[in-house]
Design a protein around this nucleic acid. Structure first.
Lengths: 366, 366
DNA sequence: CTGTTAGCGCCTTCAC
DNA sequence: GTGAAGGCGCTAACAG
């Protein structure tokens, strides 16, 4: 369990800074009461034009900056939204954050961002932190149910992004992993590939589970039996990914096509294929889930389905704004991942059989 | 000028949420006064073990979450740091944010992140926002002096990152653009290239100015006269970048080597070279400032200097922590960009002259 | 060891 | 149209 935040000690023993100019200062200088100053500044309530002008001037001259903490204390909530993501260095999450940011800024909200490094402990701590700040709502790419539950139990609107742990209890904006993976697989099957291997960290959990499901669906819809090595579980460890990829690709009986379940795996496959001197797509067709910038820079480009990551964040933000305005039945929305065909996939040419046949013909002709 | 924040209207007319459990509730349930409850919870001050236990239990049972706004109001500052960056979708800024985040989290600070889209207006508004929140300090990748000045004038510790507008007034953590660019240029000169073109948006401003300077330094240190087209200004517009790059590279008298001043320009060069069928490095040597993931995925890899972006953020965060602890003379620290040589640069082969010579020899022998 | 008291800065009735 | 008064939730002196 995470250390309760109220036991946290102050981060640093900081001297009380010289007190900043306050509403009272402005009022004094303008020769009015604090109430009048407040009304003049906020625009709510009456204030004589003359007085108002004096107040505004005084505020300007003193460089008055209102205290949001005091405001929030009174209002019992802040004009602030918590945004908890797994890894800012991962382009996907950075995009989500950027998408959400642009929408929320529009509405005057400030974002409190926490990179929880995909750890459930840190996620929990982050949830508590934003709850303490009395954020108006939370956007979260969850890694466990605990944080989501804590937030919703505190009555704070929450949108789960990309992964879902609280179905039915809060809204979620997801990517259609099943359909995306199915499309990629159908593309390969359509090109004549039968020896396809999906490389995936594991298939039990969150997004990878959906992609695995879509992969299976495509096979069964095509009425094809999958090969024995149709799925290769490579784990999450970098070295492990590299090793299993290397083993698969250096095998003489390697598949004719590989499906990387995400961009991390895809990178390993690409590097390994280069190292082994495999030509793509001649020796190996290659598709990946999640379009990454390098996939359109390399030659040939990599066939992918692209996750609408910025839109994911934006959509979630809009949904959150709705929820903050008026509660309602939780909804799950799923965004499409468009298929992008590039040069890494080609129609299967049955090399070996063709070669054997050629030999046979040659032999018989001899 | 930006609309003064105190005239901003509330983002949405939200009902007051049902009041959450407060310290008084906890105290009541534990049968003690609010002060005792506070002491028990925070650990500061005395509380009898028995009483403390009752308070902790009550807090647990009630799901008590302390109000950070009330705390900050009293403390006159929040355990919060503002982080204002230009563009989260740009890997460089995302890395900076991640680096800063990991350090600050360690010390118990929460990050308020604003993506100001590189606009001076938004930057100014963001500065005001974090000032209102009474953040303990600010990290900023500035695009104009105004925001930096506002922040420092309010007595809030500030670290400028990557770009510097307030030299002498606040700390800064920068990248050594001059040396990095010099290294890249020397690398090319050392390979025998004399017809080199640096492609850069413009050279008057911030980081590009330093890179341009380093480029010139390398030439003059080598005692070489630059060609007429040693620098190509391509502006910031995407189309414009594409066009000028295309024009340069499709010229028969194109340079033998190109220096892209940043990764955006680099991408345009790479795409254009591919489109024109130029072989790298045989037809064109290519270097770029700022290592991007794709530069090590493509074949050949692109020779670059890598900006230590994560470290930049981390260093800035540490500097900020120091400044918040004790003021001092502003310092500027500059991080090195290591040269990474890949396959995109090769020794110049004087094709034309060699060809001409061969013809001449052949002619004379005839 | 504990409760009382006061106040952080702002906003918002309610009289005047 | 304006000011006085009270309180948002928490903490820190100061008595007891």
């Amino acid at each position: 369990m995470v250390e309760p935040s109220h036991q946290r000690v102050s981060a640093a023993a900081i001297e009380l800074p010289p007190t900043r100019t306050t509403l009272a200062d402005v009022a004094d200088r303008a020769g009015v009461s604090r109430s009048t100053a407040s009304r003049a500044l906020t625009g709510r309530g009456y204030a004589a034009p003359a007085a108002k002008e004096r107040v505004l001037l005084a505020a300007e001259e003193l460089g008055y900056v209102p205290d949001a903490n005091a405001r929030s204390l009174k209002a019992r909530h802040a004009l602030t939204v918590g945004l908890l993501v797994s890894d800012l260095r991962n382009r996907f999450y950075a995009d989500v954050a950027a998408g959400a940011s642009s929408v929320l800024k529009e509405e005057g909200y400030t974002i409190v961002l926490v990179d929880d490094t995909g750890s459930d402990l840190e996620e929990m701590a982050a949830a508590r932190t934003v709850l303490e700040m009395r954020v108006a709502g939370v956007l979260l790419t969850p890694v466990s149910p605990a944080a989501s539950q804590l937030i919703t139990r505190n009555g704070v609107p929450l949108i789960e992004i990309d992964r879902q742990f609280c179905r039915g209890e809060c809204d979620a904006v997801l990517v259609d992993n099943v359909t995306g993976a199915r499309q990629l697989t159908e593309h390969l099957l359509g090109l004549g590939h039968r020896r396809i291997t999906m490389i995936v960290n594991e298939t039990e959990w969150t997004t990878n589970a959906g992609r695995h499901k879509g992969y299976l669906q495509a096979w069964s819809a095509a009425g094809r039996r999958m090969p024995d090595d149709a799925v290769l579980l490579c784990g999450f460890d970098e070295k492990q990914i590299e090793d299993s990829t290397a083993e698969l690709l250096s095998d003489r009986h390697r598949p004719t096509a590989v499906f990387a379940a995400n961009s991390v795996v895809a990178e390993a496959v690409w590097r390994q294929a280069a190292r082994l001197g495999l030509r793509i797509p001649e020796d190996l067709s290659f598709v990946a889930f999640d379009d990454s910038p390098w996939m359109s820079m390399v030659d040939p480009g990599v066939t992918t389905v692209a996750q609408p990551s910025v839109e994911l964040g934006a959509r979630a933000a809009r949904l959150l704004l709705n929820r903050m305005a008026k509660p309602g039945r939780p909804r799950t929305s799923r965004l499409d991942c468009p298929l992008i065909v590039r040069g890494s996939t080609a129609r299967l040419v049955r090399r070996r059989r063709a070669a054997r046949k050629a030999t046979a013909v040659a032999g018989s002709a001899r």
